[in-house]
Structure formats: C-alpha cells, structure tokens
C-alpha cells in the first residue's frame, strides 16, 4: 500500500463575520495516498469545499483554521505565506466549480497559462509558450496555438474547464483538488472532463481529490470515499464497500434516494427526512440524530467518533453503524 501523501486530521474551520463565529467545518479527517483518487461527497454546505480550500489556505482572512494538514510530512498550517505559496500550484493545484468565472475575463487564455507556467518553471517566454500549447494539447483542446489568443468568454464552459486543468498541470503538482469540476457543465461534457481527470491521474500518477455531491460521479471515478455531513466525516470506505455495505445511516439514506438503472420501477425513491442543520443550529450529540431512524439516547448526548469497522479502511462515525 502506498503511503499517505496528504493527511488532514482534526480539521476545523470557523468564519468570523460581523462579530459572529460560524463553524463551517467541525472535525474533518481524511488522507490521500500517492497516485490515489479520493472522493469527498456530501450535500451543499457540508464543508467539503471549505476543507479543501483550507489545505491551500485560500479561505481569506475571516477564516480560522485549526487541526493539522500534513503534506509529505510538512505541516501546511504552520508554513509562512511564502512557504504556502510554494505549495500552491506546484505541489497541490486546484480547479473550481464554475470554470468560466474562474478565469480572468480581461486576460487571454495564453497569458494566464504562461504566467502560471513561468511562475513554476522559470522558462523563457518562448519555451513557456510551447509548454502552454503542449498542456492544452494534453487536456484535449484542438488547435491549441489559436486558443491561446482567445479570451475566456469566447470559449465554452467545457473548454474553460480544460484550460483550468491545463493551468493546474502547469506546476506539475502531486495532488489535484477538483472542486465540483463538472457541476456547471452539461452531462456529455461532464463525462469528458471526468475521463480526462481519470486519464491524467493514470498517466501522470497525480493524486486527485474529487469533491462532488453526485454519488454517480463517485461510483465511477474514485478509489476511496469520505462522506461528509454537517462539517464532519461520517463515513470512510473504499468505493465498492461504500456502495455494497454502507454503514452510516446517512450514507444509506443517500444511496436509497438514488435512482438506478436496474431498479424495479415500483421501488420508490426514499428521501432523507428533514434538512441539514445550519452551522448555528446544530443539534446536541450526533449531528444526524434528528433525521435518523436508529437514534437512541446516547446519540442525543455524544457525537460519535470515526471508528474502524473491522477492516481498517472502512470507518463510520455512528453508535449504531451496520457492519
């Protein structure tokens, strides 16, 4: 088994706004091994994007991050501003949900890409341009030399996401964080982008963290899954285990609410009753307890910890986890 490249433990993120503190991430633990694709899944507001932005420390000054984020043994939270800048893009790169607005509208694709290439490699502008063309080629863009002269608004969403991926590859990073990379794109383009990410992972041996709310995307693309709920990791499992034997009632609920091709048409889709508690109104004890059919007295009092369920790779944070 490969060793851990990135270990996030006990991560907490608070936002201080207008004199109030909002807790976006309570306690998140996950790890990424070399060349591995992991998935972070959960509803909007569960803290999956915030957790990943905390890794690169790009949450802004209102965010207060606690816990530990270790990359190749270095504690990222302790690094100086210039120290973390050497990690960004070079060791760990990130792409975002809305590719069109994630590119600078007043600069050409070429100048944005070349700027990042030169930042990480000290190439001359001529060689940087050549590298830009080759990167665009690698992410499957036709006529790459012409595209360098385009502005983001002249490209489709899918093309912009490919450009974003090319920019992410510019520093030759060890980890790519893809934050809902296909949510803003239509379905056919979505599949192309996901297969591109898969291919890059295979060819470059670049570990990938895929953030999504879409279990279908998780099933087809990742090796290990972390399920987040209300700022907590509630279940961790290899992807096949998660879909075959989900242990946490929340994961089970998510899977029951998912339609399948093979389903009996009569089987109703079962929604999870209730709503995700907002950070200000989290319930006592287990965060999922008000929506859980298995909840008992202990669930009202204590937040269960993420614990191993027999095999080391399958963990759940539930007093009544099904093994």
């Amino acid at each position: 088994m490969n060793s851990d490249l990135l270990t996030v433990s006990n991560l907490g993120v608070d936002f201080l706004t207008g004199g109030r503190t909002i807790n976006a991430v309570q306690k998140v633990d996950f790890s990424v091994r070399e060349k591995e694709v992991v998935g972070l899944v959960g509803e909007s507001g569960c803290g999956k994007s915030v957790s990943c932005m905390a890794i690169l420390r790009i949450l802004g000054e209102t965010a207060k991050t606690t816990g530990s984020i270790r990359y190749k043994g270095t504690e990222l939270l302790d690094l100086s501003e210039s120290g973390i800048r050497k990690i960004r893009g070079k060791e760990i790169a990130m792409i975002f949900q809305d590719p069109v607005t994630s590119l600078n509208p007043v600069k050409k694709i070429g100048s944005q890409l070349i700027e990042i290439i030169q930042l990480h490699s000290r190439l001359s502008s001529d060689s940087a341009r050549k590298k830009a063309v080759s990167l665009l080629e690698q992410v499957g863009i036709a006529n790459p030399a012409d595209r360098l002269k385009d502005y983001p608004h002249q490209l489709s969403g899918g093309l912009c996401q490919r450009v974003m991926i090319a920019m992410a590859l510019a520093g030759d990073p060890n980890i790519l964080i893809a934050d809902e990379p296909t949510t803003a794109l239509d379905v056919t383009v979505q599949a192309q982008i996901l297969s591109l990410l898969k291919r890059l992972n295979r060819e470059r041996g670049m570990a990938t963290i895929l953030i999504t709310h879409d279990l279908g995307v998780i099933a087809e693309n990742v090796e290990r899954v972390f399920v987040l709920y209300a700022g907590l990791v509630v279940e961790e499992a290899p992807v096949d285990v998660l879909f075959k034997k989900p242990a946490h009632p929340y994961t089970q609920g998510l899977l029951k609410s998912l339609p399948r091709m093979t389903d009996d048409k009569e089987r109703p889709l079962v929604p999870i009753e209730g709503v995700v508690p907002s950070p200000e109104n989290r319930p006592s004890g287990c965060c999922f307890q008000p929506r859980c059919s298995r909840s008992t007295e202990i669930c009202l009092k204590k937040q269960p910890l993420l614990e191993s369920l027999g095999s080391g790779d399958h963990k759940a944070a539930c007093f009544h986890a099904e093994i």
């Binding site: 690169l56 800048r85 975002f96 990480h120 510019a170």
Partner: peptide, 15 residues
C-alpha cells in the same frame, strides 16, 4: 471576491 482571484491565489501567485 471574484472566482478568478481565487484561481490566481490558488495557482501560487504572489499577493
């Protein structure tokens, strides 16, 4: 607050 500023920071550019 625009996403492209976040992209620029995440890419490792200086302040």
């Amino acid at each position: 607050n625009k996403p492209y500023i976040r992209t620029a920071i995440a890419g490792g550019l200086s302040r």
